[in-house]
């Protein structure tokens, strides 16, 4: 069972080594990504939180941070294509309009809330080519 009895064991070893490295790579990547994320996060690139006391957002902060684009896409389809521009909550009776104006009530500055984070991650979403964000 010793390795040197394998006739071409020397040739096969690199394949196995490569496979092991491939399996360990994501772990190394996660460690490196974590180290750099801690060292290199610039608070000036994060979206500015609304002042305390404003109403709760439609979703939790972590959810909005990671998946706001999905929500916006869904709302665009609702509003622009299906013509559904708002809804009345059957329980509270409160009306919510589907419009950026709703966002702008708490997040007053597009520059501070959207753009600088998009810039920091080198992202150029084309939302505002058509849609209006109230200043």
């Amino acid at each position: 069972m010793s390795a040197n009895e394998t006739p071409d064991g020397g040739r096969r070893r690199p394949v196995v080594a490569l496979l092991v490295v491939a399996i360990l790579f994501p772990l190394a990547w996660s460690v490196v990504a974590r180290v750099f994320a801690q060292g290199g996060r610039d608070p000036d690139t994060l979206p500015v939180d609304p002042p305390p006391g404003t109403a709760a957002c439609v979703e939790e902060k972590s959810t909005m941070r990671f998946r706001h684009m999905d929500l916006l896409k869904e709302m665009r389809i609702d509003a622009v294509r299906d013509g559904n521009r708002g809804a009345v909550d059957p329980v509270t009776g409160k009306r919510t309009d589907i419009t950026f104006s709703e966002c702008a009530r708490c997040h007053a500055s597009r520059e501070q809330f959207c753009d600088r984070c998009h810039r920091a991650v080198n992202l150029e979403p084309d939302c505002f080519g058509c849609h209006f964000y109230p200043p």
Binding site: M1, S2, A3, E5, T6, P7, D8, G9, R12, R13, V16, V20
Partner: peptide
């Protein structure tokens, strides 16, 4: 250790 090494390298299958 030896057995796990043999399992990873598949040296017995290689024969």
């Amino acid at each position: 250790l030896s057995a796990v090494r043999a399992a990873f390298t598949h040296e017995r299958f290689a024969k």
